[in-house]
Amino acid sequence: MHIVVIGCGRVGARLASLLSRSGHTVAVIDKNPAAFERLERSFGGTTHAGVGIDRKVLQEAGIDRADALATVTNGDNTNFVAASLAVEDFHVPRVVARIADPMRAEIYSRLGVTTISTTTWASARIHDLLVSPRLHNLLSVGSAGVQVYEVEVPPLLVGRNVADLTVPAEVLVVAITRSGRGFIPVQASAFQPHDRLVVAADAGSIAKLRGMLGLPD
């Protein structure tokens, strides 16, 4: 795919490098040419100095043939305007804007721009990590038929083993992270304090899983 990234700060540079590494053609725009030094040395895309709402710069970056565009500058207004022109004027099929302010992110998404609020996302993630145990949804498989969660082992399961958290065809402990290292357990593996479990559950068995973990509904 051809992807345009507007903003080459920490997020933009990392995103552009990741996309380039996974084989996409990437064009990065930033008003400050020195920002391109943040790109990894092997970055194979193009860099364009200029502002992300300048038609000439956008065309140079190949917006006319772009399959996707991300706008991740540190300015919410710039990101919103750039995203809305990518959608409305250049008909880029996939457009994502980073918006720091959660309320604006919500409003802009009602105006037709897909937004990521880094503030909302990071604070929710940190909240979840601080106040466990809670189910963190990692993955939805096959039209949400199976959900994969990460959860810290609750005190009531410490000392019990994986078999106690297994229901054939309904609930399966896929992996355990213990002291920073992940492994795939066997039925007889015993849970230790602070284990982080990756658990797959059938969509119809989530209440059962919550019950087994002693979590409120």
Partner: peptide, 28 residues
């Protein structure tokens, strides 16, 4: 950019009848 955001919010979120905006850079 600020003027564009204000205009878009005024019209599409708050339904204001008349919206005027200043263009600073003719390229925009």
């Amino acid at each position: 950019e600020d003027n564009l955001v204000v205009a878009e919010l005024a019209r599409r979120v708050f339904g204001v009848e008349h919206v005027l905006a200043r263009v600073n850079n003719p390229d925009n």
